[in-house]
Design a protein around this nucleic acid. Structure first.
Lengths: 156, 156
DNA sequence: TATTGTTATACTCTATAACTATA
DNA sequence: TATAGTTATAGAGTATAACAATA
């Protein structure tokens, strides 16, 4: 602390997007170093999780929807994953325009390696914040997103 | 809908960071086109709001903290703002290393022009989701960030 | 003609390190 | 020596448009 410290900037954390960003940054601050250890970006991890969670093999379009990435971003990420042998890719025999993506053995192994740490971090947060409270918060977040999307339809 | 549609990818929206991201994207989806009209990025808007909310003129360090941007990003944004005459910049006479930043008349005018639309969007969200509920959610988000930061101190 | 996915391009932010000028 | 801020550099995502292959 010196004479030149000024009053901190306040009031604009009251913005909803900023509150969401701050909360997200707090959570990801724990997680990003873990991802970096495995040479994964946040977006790459989103793709891996989506692939891991998918009941079946998926096409690029489904991945775009699940990850909210743009097509060109996803194209590059998938190219990177192919180089690293994290995914297998085949052409849909029923529609040759489509790529069918699935996690390779190596890809599954990577998810299996990272995921437990992710859950440990999550558990820490649950302990600190309260499991029931966190559940309720997640529900509210989903409802909020849904409510906003409804306003989309009202004003196209 | 065609024969080739597959089961949607589920389950991983249960990730906290993803829930925060999705909610944020929903909110920002309304706001980004408005910013684009004024040639502003999300990060630039964050800086403008921070400057507008600041009780006094601020230095670069305070802006970094308020916006969670990195120094090099902020340096470029401030250079851009100077070109556009949105800010005034003076050297702190008490410490010549410091830059003192404040919004120019033009900068204040820009904030004044964009902010009402921002509030209109916010009002729409409030209506759809419920004002009290939104308030409660914001409180929870702030508490969550605080709780996570407490775990930081526990595990340095 | 429409759709799937890729390529091309320009811009911005992230992240780190090196550097300057003050203190 | 330490701090405030800038410059340099590499890498990755955002965003649009144009494109090839397939339907």
């Amino acid at each position: 602390m010196t004479d030149h410290d000024r009053a901190p900037i306040r009031a604009f954390e009251s913005s909803l997007p900023m509150a969401l960003l701050t909360a997200r940054e707090a959570a990801m601050g724990h997680f990003r170093p873990l991802l970096a250890e495995h040479d994964l970006t946040e977006q790459q991890w989103r793709v891996l999780r989506a692939l891991d969670a998918a009941p079946n093999a998926v096409d690029v379009k489904a991945l775009i929807e699940a990850t909210t990435l743009l097509a060109p971003s996803l194209t590059r990420i998938l190219a990177n994953f192919e180089e690293r042998d994290l995914i297998d890719r085949t052409v849909d025999p029923a529609d040759q325009r489509r790529s069918i993506i699935r996690l390779s053995k190596l890809g599954h192994a990577l998810v299996a390696k990272v995921a437990p740490n992710s859950e440990a971090i999550y558990a820490m947060i649950e302990t600190q914040f309260g499991a029931a409270r966190l559940d309720a918060l997640m529900t509210e977040l989903r409802d909020l997103a849904a409510a906003i999307h409804q306003t989309d339809e009202a004003t196209p």
